[in-house]
Design a protein around this nucleic acid. Sequence first.
DNA 1: AGATAAAATCAAGCGCGCATGCTGGTTTTG
DNA 2: CAAAACCAGCATGCGCGCTTGATTTTATCT
Lengths: 198, 198
Amino acid sequence: MTAPQQERSKATRLRLVEAAVDCLAEKGWSGTTVAIVARAAGVSRGAAQHHFPTREDLIAGALEFATETQLIENRARAAALPEHGLTRVEAVVNMLVDIYVGPYFRAALQVWVAASADPSLHARVQPLEARLGRTIHHVAVELLRADERKPGVRETIQGTLDMARGFGLATVLGDDSARRRPIVRQWARVLAGVLGEQ
Amino acid sequence: MTAPQQERSKATRLRLVEAAVDCLAEKGWSGTTVAIVARAAGVSRGAAQHHFPTREDLIAGALEFATETQLIENRARAAALPEHGLTRVEAVVNMLVDIYVGPYFRAALQVWVAASADPSLHARVQPLEARLGRTIHHVAVELLRADERKPGVRETIQGTLDMARGFGLATVLGDDSARRRPIVRQWARVLAGVLGEQ
DNA sequence: AGATAAAATCAAGCGCGCATGCTGGTTTTG
DNA sequence: CAAAACCAGCATGCGCGCTTGATTTTATCT
């Protein structure tokens, strides 16, 4: 048989991490208590404590889930990208920016900032962030069909990602989409120039 | 008379907000309790509560102080900027980046992220952030001697600031200076191109 | 195969620690 | 002497981790 108890266990864990991610994104770090997450997931606090012995385990699990989901979503969106030329560059930049202004990033932001003052959490979070950063960079290079051997290309792409991160940060203080749009347009033009020049 | 008791009061308040900023930067949001800040400032908890009735008042005061100090420091560094040409552009970008990777920004980051889930704090913090953002943008335009009427100039400068913000965010996860340097160099080159083209 | 032991999952309650805010008292200043 | 600045203690609330108990699933033995 398919071991239905393992099934149920997995499902409970999943509901918990999903609830934790949502809670982090909308209630923030301090607002994310195990009791609240458990209630949102529809399980008791004891059950949560069973699957994630400590609060840090729950948070780390949530971040891991968010990272994973982020990557999967990227693959999907990458497949549905437009044709060639400047519109494609702009679409790619838009996609990258969307990563950093979405709810998963908001959740991750809470954890990252909190982890900056919590060594033990930092140790668990830092590798996740590093992997995500590398993957996104790789995806960006691939989608832009960029030649990283050209001088300046790699650096410009990295800068683009950092700009997107900056957008994500600005978003937590309020909706920024109106301010963002012209910047993205302009930057896509510049980026296309750097990619294609010479 | 110079009312020395007002003098003392001011001094105590200053020590408190300074201690609060330091504490935010190195111990994070949750680690910044009024008791710890008061001890770091060398006053009793009751005194802190006297000057800042609630914890939120203390945090808001600290952020205000950090914002103010940030602006003053900028003026000073702006005066000591190099001559003209590409080196100047690079120096300006470096200066802007330094703003966002310094301790004042780290402290502000903690407050901003926490404020995203705290409406009452958000209301006090948002105008500060807006003012700081506008001022920095203005300073950047002035130092770069940019002509904002040229299409794309304003957007590129804004993008530069967002990239700097992104650097600041990346810094809380670990030292990033090595990765940053080539990106800044390249970015300065691109920015100089946008500023100078017509 | 059937039964029983063992393990896993979920629920509820308890106690500890800690941060905040408040109140009453003491010192310093004008 | 009056007022402001400063300090010590108390009370409330809350989150976390632990322990106990009940229910279901898996494993083992005859």
